[in-house]
Write a protein that binds this DNA or RNA. Structure first.
Lengths: 225, 225, 225, 225
DNA sequence: GATGAATGAGGGTTCATTCAT
DNA sequence: CATGAATGAACCCTCATTCAT
């Protein structure tokens, strides 16, 4: 599973583990995989290069470790929302949207990492990443929609798998729009220039929620904008 | 504007220009920006490295030139669809979807290039890219929806800018799902395993179309699945 | 003299000493001095690196210790042959030849070690090696030939020292031909390809014996091939 | 064949080629393969590291190239002696001996290189070396002895192949004794301490010649020491 | 004494860019 | 203009050795 770090790393003082991961995340998120410098990571983590390679063996492993670590953190939160049985599908979607925006703001570097991982230069890196976490999330989204269809909340004519895929695409695009420079600029191309920064997150969430409701849910007679 | 190539490049025999661009596109698309090798590009284009740097000055410029060249090609086609006054918004969206899938299949390397450009390692590259082309497309999408709202085709309660953004996100995600390894695998996480390859493109298009119709258009009374 | 290992090593449980020496011999013989890895030696000997350096202080010392240990083992056997007063010089030479081949087969790693020690990269290592053992052997060979000359067995016109040197060269070359990859291949360049493997050792011994007899001994009237 | 250097190296100004080879030979001969430093070679050859790797691709190739280059130079001279039809076998052997000593003095670094190549750490290097040159020499030695047997110069009862092998071993050991530190010291173990340096080469040659004559040739009735 | 985590200097190799021809 | 040989800074990773426990 996560055999990217060795046992001695896991036995480390959590504060030290954190220092190392933070330094690595910062470096990879700021410069991308190829331009990230292991010596600099070590220096910023206040450990020796030797130790970095003792713990992770290769730069590649270090990268895969933090990507996995980061996506686990984010997907875990999404899982909680999806599994919450007290929420309607509409409420879950709204929570997920809110989570996407929030995580982009708070864990920006992790989102950037996720994007970096998908970058073309690292094709073979990618093939080494266990997709179990993503598969798990994908299946949960699909199940959420299927059960929503049974309950009459989700449009029955949709293919749950492809619908879940589109929904996830919206979430992911939103995260990139907040966390990655390129997508941020692209986002601004679509923004009302006059909009006030503070309240804009809320606006983005509510508008995207409208889009997703229309896309996925059966029209709610009791609801009016 | 496109001052990435010098005059002598533009005066070149078109066949030679093409050879150079093809070699550069292939290299950047296959290996990503950092791992792409200018010497190899020159060799594959059957010219000298000296000439490459004579035409483009830097690796960065060469990359920006082909990205711009590539996106122009793709956005031009999208523009034609949006500007076609004989089509309803629904028809335009379907055409754009079809175009996204088709371009992903036919111009895979250009899509990959576009993705690579957004990769984190190239932050400052990105800031040098003129976004005029994308801005133009964004504005066209917005206008399409606004006019659709006036005509009663598009849901009036939507913010046209954010709706256009979501729509474009769906298009872009679909293109990446076809062209980029990482997104392809992610896509497969959502696929019906039993689905037949041949007919699947059509299925993806029609299902995504359903999603976008629900998301963007006012329900059509005459339509039933 | 052999101050390469400290007292605590010598006080060690012989089984543990052996484990350490075996691991070191295997590592140095397989990879050569520079590529040998002290951490791996420790791991294979089931002790800590710290202990290795506690016992031997440096990698160099460890190497010198095992080289000395190994050559002592081999030269000891040669000494017994030379000192055996019941044998004629011819018989001694044949025994020494047989011993060279046998030790190459049985103590291949020690022979390799000996060769590695002579490798150029370790010039200053070499100067630290006490040559007492080799000197002792050299003197014994010389004395054997000198006494053979007195008894009329060895060609009287030979310089005993240079003759002993040539004889030793033949022995050493034979050992390398059996134990070291490079010399093995070189040996094969001279082999009859059709020769049967099993009986070949015997053939090598008898032929080389003929050579050495001709080189060193006075023709024996009673002997005919 | 000698594809260790690329075409552009071969097209180089001979003076420059020589400078590079000399620098490489000196470095490898002085420190051995593992400890040799490509940056230092470049500096001493007054070229850039980049050029070294342009010409030879890897440190390994550079090493193999100079080893081949060196052994070709030495074996070429040996070939001339063996092929000289005006000489008797005895004369050829004496010339070869003289050549061994002379080449050891004049091309000491090449001999050291040859020894380094056979060092254990470079097993896989070794397997990449074409042995054609050595095979050629081996076959010439064998043929020399076989023809000597037909002419009645060489002892008829000897196996020509194994005899040639022993002869070559004597030559090689002698070269190492002159060129390689370890073997030089071993050689001194056998030396008359009182011997005068100047005339000693001659003494070594004549004594070793006696040994080889006895080993290989039929006793010459007209010859007396 | 024993442990093994930590250190950090050092080296092979790459590649964008230059410039003499 | 075109060439392509030359440059050299930069980076991942190794491993002998140390030392706190």
């Amino acid at each position: 599973m996560d055999s990217f770090a060795n046992e001695s790393f896991k036995r480390l003082d959590p504060e030290k583990q954190d220092r190392i991961l933070k330094a690595a995340i910062a470096e990879f998120a700021e410069r991308g995989y190829e331009l990230a410098n292991t010596n600099r990571i070590a220096k910023n983590a206040n450990i020796s290069v030797g130790s970095v390679f003792h713990y992770f063996n290769t730069k590649e492993n270090l990268f895969l470790y933090i990507v996995q670590y980061g996506s686990a953190m984010i997907e875990e939160q999404a899982g909680k929302v999806v599994d919450d049985e007290t929420l309607s599908v509409a409420q879950k979607i709204e929570c997920l949207l809110r989570l996407a925006v929030k995580s982009s703001r708070e864990e920006m570097t992790l989102i950037r990492l996720y994007h970096e991982m998908s970058s073309i230069g690292n094709q073979d890196l990618m093939s080494k990443l266990p997709r179990s976490m993503e598969l798990f999330t994908a299946e949960r989204y699909v199940k959420m929609l299927e059960e929503g269809q049974k309950k009459g909340e989700v449009r029955p004519e949709l293919d749950a798998r492809l619908a879940a895929f589109s929904m996830d695409n919206i979430f992911l695009s939103l995260q990139f729009a907040y966390a990655c420079d390129y997508y941020r600029i692209r986002f601004q191309l679509y923004n009302h220039p006059e909009i006030d920064k503070e309240e804009y997150d809320e606006k983005v969430i509510s508008e995207t929620f409208q889009i997703l409701k229309g896309a996925l849910l059966v029209p709610d007679m009791s609801e009016r904008d």
